[in-house]
Write a protein that binds this DNA or RNA. Structure first.
Lengths: 132, 132
DNA sequence: CTTACAAATGTTATATTATTACATAATGTT
DNA sequence: AACATTATGTAATAATATAACATTTGTAAG
Protein backbone atom coordinates (compact mmCIF):
# COMPACT_ATOMS: atom_id res chain seq x y z
CA UNK A 1 0.00 0.00 0.00
CA UNK A 2 1.37 3.39 -1.02
CA UNK A 3 1.73 5.95 1.70
CA UNK A 4 -0.85 8.68 1.48
CA UNK A 5 0.57 12.16 1.51
CA UNK A 6 -1.81 14.83 2.62
CA UNK A 7 -0.51 17.94 1.04
CA UNK A 8 -0.23 21.00 3.19
CA UNK A 9 -1.81 24.29 2.18
CA UNK A 10 1.17 25.66 0.27
CA UNK A 11 2.02 22.32 -1.24
CA UNK A 12 -1.53 21.97 -2.51
CA UNK A 13 -1.65 25.46 -4.01
CA UNK A 14 1.61 24.89 -5.82
CA UNK A 15 0.86 21.36 -6.92
CA UNK A 16 -2.51 22.42 -8.35
CA UNK A 17 -0.86 25.16 -10.35
CA UNK A 18 1.78 22.84 -11.80
CA UNK A 19 -0.75 20.10 -12.42
CA UNK A 20 -3.00 22.40 -14.44
CA UNK A 21 -0.15 23.80 -16.47
CA UNK A 22 0.39 22.45 -19.99
CA UNK A 23 4.07 23.22 -19.73
CA UNK A 24 6.79 22.97 -17.09
CA UNK A 25 6.80 25.89 -14.69
CA UNK A 26 9.77 27.69 -13.24
CA UNK A 27 10.03 28.50 -9.58
CA UNK A 28 9.74 32.26 -9.91
CA UNK A 29 6.89 31.98 -12.36
CA UNK A 30 5.14 29.85 -9.76
CA UNK A 31 5.91 32.45 -7.14
CA UNK A 32 4.41 35.17 -9.28
CA UNK A 33 1.28 33.10 -9.83
CA UNK A 34 0.64 32.26 -6.20
CA UNK A 35 1.24 35.64 -4.68
CA UNK A 36 -2.45 36.34 -4.78
CA UNK A 37 -2.88 33.30 -2.57
CA UNK A 38 -0.57 34.62 0.08
CA UNK A 39 2.68 32.93 -0.83
CA UNK A 40 5.16 35.74 -0.89
CA UNK A 41 8.67 34.41 -0.70
CA UNK A 42 10.85 32.23 -2.92
CA UNK A 43 11.61 29.96 -0.03
CA UNK A 44 7.98 29.09 0.44
CA UNK A 45 7.88 27.97 -3.17
CA UNK A 46 11.14 26.04 -3.04
CA UNK A 47 10.12 24.25 0.12
CA UNK A 48 6.89 23.08 -1.40
CA UNK A 49 8.67 22.09 -4.61
CA UNK A 50 11.27 20.09 -2.67
CA UNK A 51 8.58 18.19 -0.84
CA UNK A 52 6.51 17.56 -3.96
CA UNK A 53 9.58 16.25 -5.76
CA UNK A 54 10.45 14.07 -2.78
CA UNK A 55 7.05 12.40 -2.72
CA UNK A 56 6.97 12.06 -6.50
CA UNK A 57 4.03 14.34 -7.26
CA UNK A 58 6.19 16.48 -9.52
CA UNK A 59 9.52 16.16 -11.29
CA UNK A 60 12.23 18.65 -12.00
CA UNK A 61 13.36 19.02 -15.59
CA UNK A 62 17.00 19.57 -14.77
CA UNK A 63 18.06 21.01 -18.09
CA UNK A 64 15.33 23.63 -17.87
CA UNK A 65 15.12 24.34 -14.14
CA UNK A 66 11.42 23.75 -14.38
CA UNK A 67 8.82 21.54 -12.77
CA UNK A 68 6.14 19.29 -14.23
CA UNK A 69 3.45 17.16 -12.59
CA UNK A 70 4.05 13.43 -12.62
CA UNK A 71 2.16 11.76 -15.43
CA UNK A 72 2.32 8.22 -14.13
CA UNK A 73 -1.08 7.50 -12.68
CA UNK A 74 0.55 4.86 -10.53
CA UNK A 75 3.34 7.08 -9.44
CA UNK A 76 5.79 4.52 -8.11
CA UNK A 77 8.77 5.46 -10.13
CA UNK A 78 9.59 8.99 -9.17
CA UNK A 79 13.19 7.89 -8.83
CA UNK A 80 13.31 6.71 -12.40
CA UNK A 81 12.30 9.49 -14.74
CA UNK A 82 12.49 10.01 -18.48
CA UNK A 83 11.37 13.00 -20.47
CA UNK A 84 11.01 14.07 -24.06
CA UNK A 85 11.92 17.69 -24.66
CA UNK A 86 11.29 19.56 -27.90
CA UNK A 87 14.22 21.84 -28.61
CA UNK A 88 12.06 24.14 -30.68
CA UNK A 89 8.81 24.69 -28.78
CA UNK A 90 10.08 23.41 -25.43
CA UNK A 91 7.18 21.02 -25.03
CA UNK A 92 8.02 18.42 -22.41
CA UNK A 93 6.38 15.03 -21.93
CA UNK A 94 7.09 12.35 -19.43
CA UNK A 95 7.99 9.05 -21.05
CA UNK A 96 6.33 6.10 -19.41
CA UNK A 97 7.78 3.10 -21.14
CA UNK A 98 8.14 -0.12 -19.25
CA UNK A 99 10.88 -1.55 -21.42
CA UNK A 100 12.97 1.57 -21.07
CA UNK A 101 12.54 1.79 -17.31
CA UNK A 102 13.37 -1.89 -16.91
CA UNK A 103 16.41 -1.53 -19.11
CA UNK A 104 17.73 1.41 -17.12
CA UNK A 105 16.85 0.06 -13.70
CA UNK A 106 18.70 -3.12 -14.51
CA UNK A 107 21.62 -1.40 -16.15
CA UNK A 108 25.03 -2.37 -14.84
CA UNK A 109 27.99 -0.22 -15.69
CA UNK A 110 31.34 -1.69 -16.61
CA UNK A 111 32.35 -1.89 -12.96
CA UNK A 112 29.23 -3.87 -12.16
CA UNK A 113 27.58 -1.02 -10.35
CA UNK A 114 23.80 -0.70 -10.29
CA UNK A 115 21.77 2.44 -9.68
CA UNK A 116 18.56 2.92 -7.78
CA UNK A 117 17.76 6.21 -9.41
CA UNK A 118 18.15 7.93 -12.73
CA UNK A 119 16.97 10.85 -14.79
CA UNK A 120 16.94 10.77 -18.58
CA UNK A 121 16.19 13.71 -20.83
CA UNK A 122 15.73 13.17 -24.55
CA UNK A 123 15.99 16.09 -26.94
CA UNK A 124 14.60 16.43 -30.43
CA UNK A 125 11.81 18.00 -32.40
CA UNK A 126 8.23 17.19 -31.57
CA UNK A 127 5.87 16.23 -34.38
CA UNK A 128 4.46 19.71 -34.80
CA UNK A 129 7.84 21.35 -34.97
CA UNK A 130 9.27 18.69 -37.25
CA UNK A 131 6.58 19.27 -39.84
CA UNK A 132 7.23 23.00 -40.07
CA UNK B 1 37.43 13.34 -40.52
CA UNK B 2 36.53 15.20 -37.36
CA UNK B 3 36.77 18.95 -37.48
CA UNK B 4 39.72 20.29 -35.54
CA UNK B 5 38.87 22.96 -33.06
CA UNK B 6 41.70 25.21 -32.09
CA UNK B 7 40.82 26.47 -28.69
CA UNK B 8 41.17 30.15 -28.05
CA UNK B 9 43.15 31.50 -25.12
CA UNK B 10 40.29 31.60 -22.63
CA UNK B 11 38.86 28.31 -23.85
CA UNK B 12 42.20 26.63 -23.39
CA UNK B 13 42.75 28.00 -19.89
CA UNK B 14 39.32 26.85 -18.82
CA UNK B 15 39.46 23.50 -20.55
CA UNK B 16 42.83 22.71 -18.99
CA UNK B 17 41.50 23.49 -15.54
CA UNK B 18 38.46 21.26 -15.99
CA UNK B 19 40.46 18.52 -17.61
CA UNK B 20 42.91 18.37 -14.73
CA UNK B 21 40.18 18.37 -12.10
CA UNK B 22 39.23 15.04 -10.54
CA UNK B 23 35.72 16.35 -9.95
CA UNK B 24 33.18 18.44 -11.82
CA UNK B 25 33.78 22.15 -11.49
CA UNK B 26 31.21 24.89 -11.07
CA UNK B 27 31.34 28.05 -13.09
CA UNK B 28 32.18 30.40 -10.25
CA UNK B 29 34.76 28.05 -8.86
CA UNK B 30 36.35 28.10 -12.31
CA UNK B 31 36.17 31.87 -12.32
CA UNK B 32 37.93 32.03 -8.98
CA UNK B 33 40.65 29.71 -10.22
CA UNK B 34 41.40 31.56 -13.43
CA UNK B 35 41.42 35.09 -12.12
CA UNK B 36 45.18 34.93 -11.80
CA UNK B 37 45.27 34.27 -15.51
CA UNK B 38 43.36 37.42 -16.32
CA UNK B 39 39.85 36.11 -16.67
CA UNK B 40 37.84 38.43 -14.50
CA UNK B 41 34.19 38.18 -15.36
CA UNK B 42 31.56 35.43 -15.18
CA UNK B 43 30.66 36.01 -18.77
CA UNK B 44 34.13 35.13 -19.93
CA UNK B 45 33.80 31.82 -18.14
CA UNK B 46 30.30 31.10 -19.39
CA UNK B 47 31.25 31.89 -22.96
CA UNK B 48 34.14 29.50 -22.88
CA UNK B 49 32.01 26.84 -21.20
CA UNK B 50 29.29 27.22 -23.82
CA UNK B 51 31.77 26.74 -26.60
CA UNK B 52 33.49 23.79 -24.95
CA UNK B 53 30.15 22.09 -24.41
CA UNK B 54 29.15 22.81 -28.00
CA UNK B 55 32.24 21.16 -29.42
CA UNK B 56 32.03 18.27 -26.99
CA UNK B 57 35.22 18.84 -25.02
CA UNK B 58 33.28 19.11 -21.78
CA UNK B 59 29.84 18.16 -20.56
CA UNK B 60 27.50 19.82 -18.13
CA UNK B 61 26.21 17.74 -15.25
CA UNK B 62 22.75 19.24 -15.22
CA UNK B 63 21.71 18.10 -11.79
CA UNK B 64 24.81 19.67 -10.28
CA UNK B 65 25.38 22.73 -12.44
CA UNK B 66 28.92 21.58 -12.92
CA UNK B 67 31.25 20.76 -15.77
CA UNK B 68 33.44 17.76 -16.47
CA UNK B 69 35.87 17.00 -19.29
CA UNK B 70 34.71 14.49 -21.85
CA UNK B 71 36.12 11.05 -21.12
CA UNK B 72 35.48 9.52 -24.52
CA UNK B 73 38.80 9.45 -26.27
CA UNK B 74 36.93 9.37 -29.55
CA UNK B 75 34.63 12.13 -28.58
CA UNK B 76 31.91 11.68 -31.14
CA UNK B 77 28.98 11.38 -28.87
CA UNK B 78 28.75 14.62 -27.06
CA UNK B 79 25.07 14.65 -27.84
CA UNK B 80 24.57 11.35 -26.12
CA UNK B 81 25.83 11.51 -22.58
CA UNK B 82 25.50 9.29 -19.55
CA UNK B 83 26.92 9.81 -16.11
CA UNK B 84 27.21 8.01 -12.83
CA UNK B 85 26.85 10.24 -9.80
CA UNK B 86 27.53 9.19 -6.23
CA UNK B 87 24.95 10.75 -3.94
CA UNK B 88 27.29 10.59 -1.01
CA UNK B 89 30.71 11.80 -2.17
CA UNK B 90 29.48 13.45 -5.38
CA UNK B 91 32.00 11.60 -7.51
CA UNK B 92 30.94 11.73 -11.15
CA UNK B 93 32.08 9.46 -13.96
CA UNK B 94 31.11 9.43 -17.57
CA UNK B 95 29.61 6.14 -18.67
CA UNK B 96 30.92 4.97 -21.99
CA UNK B 97 28.92 1.88 -22.78
CA UNK B 98 28.18 1.00 -26.35
CA UNK B 99 25.12 -1.10 -25.62
CA UNK B 100 23.58 1.67 -23.57
CA UNK B 101 24.26 4.36 -26.14
CA UNK B 102 22.90 2.19 -28.93
CA UNK B 103 19.82 1.37 -26.93
CA UNK B 104 19.10 5.01 -26.19
CA UNK B 105 19.97 6.32 -29.64
CA UNK B 106 17.61 3.82 -31.16
CA UNK B 107 14.89 4.32 -28.61
CA UNK B 108 11.46 5.09 -30.02
CA UNK B 109 8.82 6.44 -27.70
CA UNK B 110 5.23 5.27 -27.87
CA UNK B 111 4.44 7.84 -30.55
CA UNK B 112 7.27 6.53 -32.72
CA UNK B 113 9.43 9.53 -32.11
CA UNK B 114 13.23 9.24 -32.17
CA UNK B 115 15.72 11.56 -30.53
CA UNK B 116 19.09 12.72 -31.75
CA UNK B 117 20.27 13.76 -28.33
CA UNK B 118 19.94 12.71 -24.74
CA UNK B 119 21.43 13.12 -21.30
CA UNK B 120 21.23 10.43 -18.67
CA UNK B 121 22.26 10.80 -15.06
CA UNK B 122 22.39 7.74 -12.82
CA UNK B 123 22.44 8.16 -9.05
CA UNK B 124 23.64 5.76 -6.41
CA UNK B 125 26.49 5.05 -4.08
CA UNK B 126 29.96 4.50 -5.44
CA UNK B 127 31.95 1.51 -4.26
CA UNK B 128 33.86 3.42 -1.62
CA UNK B 129 30.76 4.98 -0.14
CA UNK B 130 28.79 1.75 -0.27
CA UNK B 131 31.39 -0.08 1.78
CA UNK B 132 31.34 2.47 4.60
C1' DC C 1 -6.71 16.59 26.61
C1' DT C 2 -2.02 17.82 26.88
C1' DT C 3 2.50 17.05 26.10
C1' DA C 4 5.93 16.39 22.90
C1' DC C 5 7.83 15.92 18.45
C1' DA C 6 7.89 16.48 13.56
C1' DA C 7 6.51 19.05 9.70
C1' DA C 8 5.26 23.24 7.68
C1' DT C 9 5.08 28.26 7.58
C1' DG C 10 6.59 33.19 7.54
C1' DT C 11 10.17 36.55 6.89
C1' DT C 12 14.53 38.74 5.86
C1' DA C 13 18.66 38.52 3.91
C1' DT C 14 21.95 36.62 0.96
C1' DA C 15 24.35 33.21 -2.01
C1' DT C 16 24.76 31.11 -6.44
C1' DT C 17 24.05 30.66 -11.28
C1' DA C 18 23.50 32.88 -15.67
C1' DT C 19 22.45 36.53 -19.25
C1' DT C 20 21.90 41.28 -21.63
C1' DA C 21 23.99 44.95 -23.80
C1' DC C 22 27.57 47.22 -25.88
C1' DA C 23 32.35 48.15 -27.37
C1' DT C 24 36.69 46.29 -29.08
C1' DA C 25 40.16 42.94 -30.75
C1' DA C 26 41.83 38.73 -32.90
C1' DT C 27 41.42 35.27 -36.41
C1' DG C 28 40.24 33.10 -40.69
C1' DT C 29 38.91 33.50 -45.71
C1' DT C 30 38.85 35.33 -50.20
C1' DA D 1 43.43 44.45 -47.89
C1' DA D 2 38.65 43.70 -47.10
C1' DC D 3 35.36 41.24 -45.01
C1' DA D 4 33.09 38.08 -42.01
C1' DT D 5 33.29 35.35 -38.01
C1' DT D 6 34.70 34.36 -33.62
C1' DA D 7 36.47 35.76 -29.34
C1' DT D 8 37.36 39.20 -25.73
C1' DG D 9 36.56 42.86 -22.10
C1' DT D 10 33.55 45.22 -18.95
C1' DA D 11 29.55 46.70 -16.37
C1' DA D 12 25.21 45.87 -14.97
C1' DT D 13 21.53 42.96 -13.83
C1' DA D 14 18.45 38.86 -14.13
C1' DA D 15 17.26 34.34 -12.63
C1' DT D 16 17.78 30.54 -9.57
C1' DA D 17 18.36 28.85 -4.92
C1' DT D 18 19.61 28.62 0.11
C1' DA D 19 20.78 30.09 5.16
C1' DA D 20 19.17 31.43 9.48
C1' DC D 21 15.81 32.16 12.74
C1' DA D 22 11.20 32.58 14.86
C1' DT D 23 6.61 30.78 14.94
C1' DT D 24 2.69 27.80 13.98
C1' DT D 25 0.31 23.66 12.76
C1' DG D 26 -0.39 18.70 12.53
C1' DT D 27 0.06 14.26 14.65
C1' DA D 28 0.74 10.59 17.79
C1' DA D 29 1.50 8.87 22.62
C1' DG D 30 0.47 8.92 27.17
Amino acid sequence: MEKQHNLSKNQKIIFDLIDKSPEPLKAYSILFNVQKKGINAPLQVYRALDKLVEIGKIHKIESRNAFIACQNSSCQISKATAFSICESCEKVSEINNLKLSKYLSNFEDDSGMRYNKYNLEFFGLCKKCKSK
